[in-house]
Nucleic acid binder design. Structure first.
Lengths: 205, 205
DNA sequence: AAAACTCTCTACCAAATGGTAGAGAGAAGG
DNA sequence: CCTTCTCTCTACCATTTGGTAGAGAGTTTT
């Protein structure tokens, strides 16, 4: 088998990991290069500046996220089942690629100048999610509420429960694999309760 | 009137704001000093190192948070009303002192070495919150579930909806004062739905 | 074989960073 | 009046940082 990975890609991967774990400022090009067994100038050959590298990392991460989301949204599920499928996917992401969610956290820091770059990529996907929620509300499969606000609540809750390791620790929840499963199923119960339509709000159409 | 604020306190305030807004690494002592109209060595006179300053900032912030929370929890409210009072308080905090929640976000970054310091301070308050949830569940005023997990979900949702400005922007929610009120009331509806006890789960005692 | 291109390197650099040493000014206390 | 203490400053410093300039080696193209 051929394990060769082009340098540019290796830089991108390592940078995603570093930026997502330590943040932009705390990541130095020298440290990144050392970790790759390469000189800093090799990085600067592929990316003209640290900021340019960061931008490329965001682009790559956004692409991954969109792909992953679109894939999960293209299986024809409805109502809470669809929501639950997404939740599962995000938890898998939190376990397998925590640095990706870490990067999102870094980029969405209040006042971030790079937030726009990420949202430009995920915009259409966000729209799709909102339309999904609207449709399912109209069909009486989800409790009616403001779709944008609901989306925000869902985002905060799911990403938080999936990846707020230190908060979990502070609340006495161990970071074990077993606890992760419990966490996800508790979250699902929480969301089901929050999203389930009341009998009164039957299908409109 | 006497507006004099001791230098040490001014440093602490400015540092909280800077660390909470830009993060630890992106904050330099020189910049901080310049902002205060003082030399870096003045800061280092009161705090022996940048890390020591950060620690002190965390201590001060934790004290504020605990005080604020204990105060809001000491008014004898029960069930969802108590939860809603806390939500209101956190939203006020997000409007009036966003950098405080920003600092929490910074400190709770996965892998943070300072997270322990914060949680040491808020530990008792977290315990109190958990006991509250347990009690209210037993009294049939909240839907039964794992208290720790519920606390985590509540934390993520409330803090996220209150302070994830860039995510909100990406979802088409403007950062206006008016939108903040709408956001809080939508969040409250969301939480009420998630927390309200089912008729089946009546009071145990 | 010469020229051009791709990629990684060595050699530097100016600026910024956290931190040390200690002077100086003013107030407080003997 | 002298000493001591509190506070802020100037003067430095070693290290790290992002970035420039360009050499050198290998490969591809002409």
């Amino acid at each position: 088998m051929n394990n060769f990975v082009p340098t540019r890609q290796r830089v991108l991967d390592a940078a995603l990991s570093a930026f997502g774990t330590d943040g932009y400022s705390a990541t130095s090009l020298d440290a990144l290069a050392a970790q790759l067994g390469v000189r800093k100038q090799t990085i600067l050959y592929y990316f003209p500046s640290k900021q340019a590298l960061f931008d490329s990392v965001i682009d790559a991460a956004a692409q991954d996220l969109v792909e992953l989301f679109e894939q999960e949204a293209s299986r024809g599920l409805t109502g809470i089942d669809q929501v639950e499928a997404i939740v599962r996917r995000i938890f898998r992401l939190a376990v397998n690629r925590p640095e990706l969610l870490g990067l999102v956290r870094e980029v969405t820091r209040p006042g971030s100048i790079t937030a726009g770059r990420l949202s430009a990529h995920v915009g259409p996907t966000v729209d799709r999610a909102r339309r999904f929620l609207e449709r399912e509300m109209n069909a009486g499969r989800l409790r009616r509420s403001d779709p944008s606000m609901l989306l925000l609540s869902l985002y905060s809750t799911v990403v938080g429960v999936a990846s707020e390791l230190e908060v979990q620790r502070a609340m006495g929840i161990p970071p074990s694999r077993r606890a992760t499963v419990v966490r996800r199923s508790e979250l699902t119960r929480f969301l089901r309760a929050a999203l389930a339509p009341t009998d009164a709000s039957a299908a409109v159409q």
